[in-house]
Amino acid sequence: TINESFGLPFWLSSFILVILILITLFLKFDRLIAVLGGVTPFLVAVVVMIAVYYFITGDLNFSDVSQYSNQNKSISPGWWFDAINYASLQIAAAFSFLTVMGGKLRYQSSTIYGGLIGGIIVTLLLLLINFGLVTEFNQIKEVALPSLLLAKQISPSIGIIMSVIMVLVIYNTVVGLMYAFASRFSRPFTKRYYILIVMMAIITFACTFVGFISLIGKVFPIMGLFGFILLIPVIYKGILRK
C-alpha cells in the first residue's frame, strides 16, 4: 500500500511499518488499546462513503461476477464453504487479542453487547463494500487492492486518505496479533517478551517479500480452517453455560 500510493521502495515501506509496530509493542497495554481504537472510526467512515457512492452511482451487474467465477473455478466446493472459511478466518485472527481484551473488561455485558454490535457492524460494512465492488467489477477484478482503486477513482485526495487508513489498519492488525502471541508465551513487558517481539518483527519483515496476493492465497484458507476448529469448543461451551 505504501509502495503503490507514495512511491517509496517496497523494502523501505515494509521496514518503516515493522519499526512502528515494534515501537508500539514497547508501550503499556492501555496505551496500546488507545492506539488501536483510534483507527476504527476513520475506517468505518471512509468505507461507508466509498461503498454508498458506488452503490448509488453504479449498477449491480451480477452476471459479470458469475461469468468470471465460472471461468476461474477454485478448489473450493462452493460459495458456502468460502463463507464459512472467511468467517472462521476472522475468528482465528481476532480470537487471541479479544481474549486478552475480554479479561480486562469490568462487566460481562460489555463482552456480550460488544461482540454482538461489533459483529453486526462488520457484517453491514462487508455487505456495503462488496456491493460497491460488484458495481465496478470489471475494473477491480485483477487488482490487488480494489477498495483503494475505488477510492482513487472518486478523488485522488480520498485515495490518499484511504491509503493512510489502510496502512493504519494493517498496523492495527499486526500489533494486536503480535501482542496476543507474545503475551501467551511471556509476561508482557519483561525481557522474554521483548526478545519475542523483536524476533517476530524480523520474521514479519521477511514475510513481506513473499507477495501480498500469494501470501493471502496460501495463509488465509489455512487460518480459516484453524478458526473453524476454534469455533467448535467455543460454541459447545457457550451452549453449556446457557
Rank of each mutant, 00 (worst) to 15 (best):
R187H: 10
G58E: 00
L225H: 05
L149M: 14
I16V: 15
R31S: 12
V210Y: 10
T123M: 15
A45Y: 03
V210F: 10
L27F: 14
I84F: 07
K237Y: 11
A51Y: 03
Y68P: 03
I213H: 05
G118M: 11
I235Q: 09
I239G: 01
G119V: 02
S147E: 12
T57F: 04
G103A: 08
F185Y: 15
S183E: 12
V174T: 15
S96T: 05
L36D: 01
L126E: 05
I75Y: 11
A92P: 05
V134S: 06
P9T: 11
V46F: 07
A87Y: 05
F212L: 15
A151N: 09
L215K: 05
V44S: 00
S186C: 04
I232F: 00
L150V: 00
L98W: 03
K242W: 11
G224H: 03
L168Y: 04
I120Q: 09
S69D: 12
G159S: 12
S63K: 07
I203K: 06
I235C: 01
A206M: 15
V65I: 08
I195E: 04
A201P: 01
P188F: 09
V175S: 09
I56F: 09
S66K: 11
M162P: 04
F209V: 02
S66N: 09
T40Q: 14
G217P: 04
V52E: 05
E136K: 14
F62P: 06
F95A: 13
G227A: 10
L196P: 00
W80D: 10
L36P: 02
I165M: 02
S63R: 06
V44Q: 05
V169P: 02
L225T: 12
W80S: 04
V48F: 10
I216R: 14
P233W: 06
L124E: 14
I19Q: 07
I213R: 09
M200N: 05
V18P: 03
I232G: 02
T99F: 00
L43I: 08
F10H: 15
I229Q: 01
F185V: 13
S109M: 11
P188S: 13
I197C: 02
T204Y: 12
F209N: 09
D64C: 04
G38N: 12
S63C: 07
I33D: 00
I140C: 08
G7K: 13
R241K: 14
F95T: 06
K141S: 06
L177Q: 15
Y193Q: 03
M166E: 05
L98N: 06
N130F: 10
I213K: 12
V48H: 03
P156F: 11
G118T: 13
F26S: 13
F81G: 01
T208A: 12
P188G: 11
L17V: 07
M101T: 04
A94G: 04
F29V: 12
W80L: 13
L43F: 15
R241H: 08
W11Y: 14
L22E: 10
F55N: 01
W79E: 03
F55R: 02
G176F: 05
G238N: 07
V52Q: 01
S183I: 07
L32T: 08
N172F: 09
F228Y: 11
